[in-house]
Amino acid sequence: MAPALSRILARADQGARLLVMAGAALMVAVVSAQVVMRYVFNGSFDWADEASRIAFVWTIFLAIPLGIRDGSHVGIELLVRRFPPRIQRLLARVMNGLAALMLAVVCVTSVRVAQMTWSERLGSVDLTSSVFFLPVILGAAHGALHLIDLALNPRDPAQ
């Protein structure tokens, strides 16, 4: 991996990991507080559903690049594993490059949609509805960088 790309990905991974942990903790805290409010105090927070949904979306989309990095996403390799290692590496490069291109399209499209919906507000929290597109943008860009790295430096097929 190129030293500059390696440093960028290491920092992005560290930041994503921290944000994923914070998002998961926020989800647990908000949902737990909401359950206590409903069943113990017979009331609720108006913003709890919206806040937990935002935390969920951020957590999921920021975790996707970490799964790409670790190779933990589902893959069907029944046919590919029958090819010689050289062909497997070539296919891995091509597929990772195509996936990086797809994530670049997702990133650019998400930026455009976020710009178009920026003025729309959420119902119970005074935030732009584009708050749901920001993690898609960040996750797609981060994931595309990991896929570019994998296209340039494919893993050993024996792994």
Results as ranks from 00 to 15, higher is better:
25 A>T: 11
73 H>W: 04
150 L>W: 10
114 A>I: 08
143 G>I: 11
112 R>S: 07
125 V>S: 03
114 A>M: 12
74 V>N: 00
86 R>C: 06
4 A>W: 11
40 V>C: 04
113 V>T: 13
124 S>W: 11
66 L>G: 07
68 I>E: 07
25 A>R: 04
58 W>I: 00
147 L>E: 02
147 L>R: 07
9 L>E: 09
43 G>T: 15
124 S>Q: 14
53 R>A: 05
103 L>V: 10
36 V>P: 02
10 A>E: 01
156 D>V: 01
137 I>V: 15
67 G>E: 05
61 F>E: 01
11 R>S: 10
128 T>K: 01
153 N>P: 05
35 V>R: 01
40 V>Q: 03
53 R>F: 11
54 I>A: 04
68 I>P: 05
118 W>Q: 01
141 A>G: 12
66 L>D: 03
47 W>L: 04
7 R>N: 03
111 V>A: 02
123 G>Q: 02
132 F>S: 06
129 S>M: 11
8 I>L: 06
115 Q>P: 09
127 L>N: 01
147 L>S: 04
116 M>Q: 15
91 L>E: 09
31 V>D: 05
50 E>G: 00
85 P>V: 07
143 G>T: 14
32 S>L: 09
129 S>F: 05
75 G>I: 15
158 A>S: 13
153 N>M: 03
21 M>K: 05
21 M>W: 14
25 A>I: 02
38 R>A: 05
5 L>F: 04
19 L>F: 11
45 F>T: 13
156 D>H: 10
34 Q>K: 08
44 S>Y: 13
74 V>A: 06
23 G>A: 06
57 V>G: 08
59 T>C: 00
114 A>S: 10
27 M>G: 09
56 F>R: 02
2 A>W: 13
31 V>E: 08
98 L>M: 15
108 V>Q: 07
83 F>Y: 15
92 A>E: 13
13 D>S: 11
80 V>F: 03
54 I>Q: 06
106 V>H: 05
157 P>V: 04
147 L>M: 13
97 G>I: 07
137 I>R: 09
132 F>D: 04
46 D>K: 12
48 A>T: 08
150 L>G: 14
157 P>H: 05
82 R>P: 05
131 V>E: 06
56 F>Y: 12
58 W>A: 12
121 R>D: 04
44 S>H: 08
60 I>N: 08
107 C>V: 10
58 W>V: 02
18 L>N: 00
15 G>A: 09
111 V>H: 08
90 L>A: 14
133 F>I: 05
67 G>A: 13
60 I>P: 07
1 M>W: 03
54 I>N: 06
68 I>N: 09
48 A>N: 09
69 R>T: 00
104 A>H: 11
38 R>T: 08
82 R>S: 15
155 R>D: 05
68 I>R: 07
139 G>K: 09
139 G>P: 10
60 I>L: 13
10 A>L: 11
36 V>N: 00
22 A>L: 12
139 G>V: 06
53 R>D: 01
120 E>D: 13
39 Y>N: 08
75 G>Q: 13
153 N>K: 09
31 V>C: 13
115 Q>Y: 11
153 N>V: 10
13 D>T: 00
124 S>M: 02
116 M>V: 12
3 P>R: 12
33 A>T: 10
57 V>A: 06
33 A>R: 08
116 M>H: 14
65 P>D: 01
75 G>F: 12
27 M>E: 12
69 R>C: 02
91 L>A: 07
63 A>C: 02
152 L>I: 14
27 M>I: 14
143 G>K: 13
32 S>F: 10
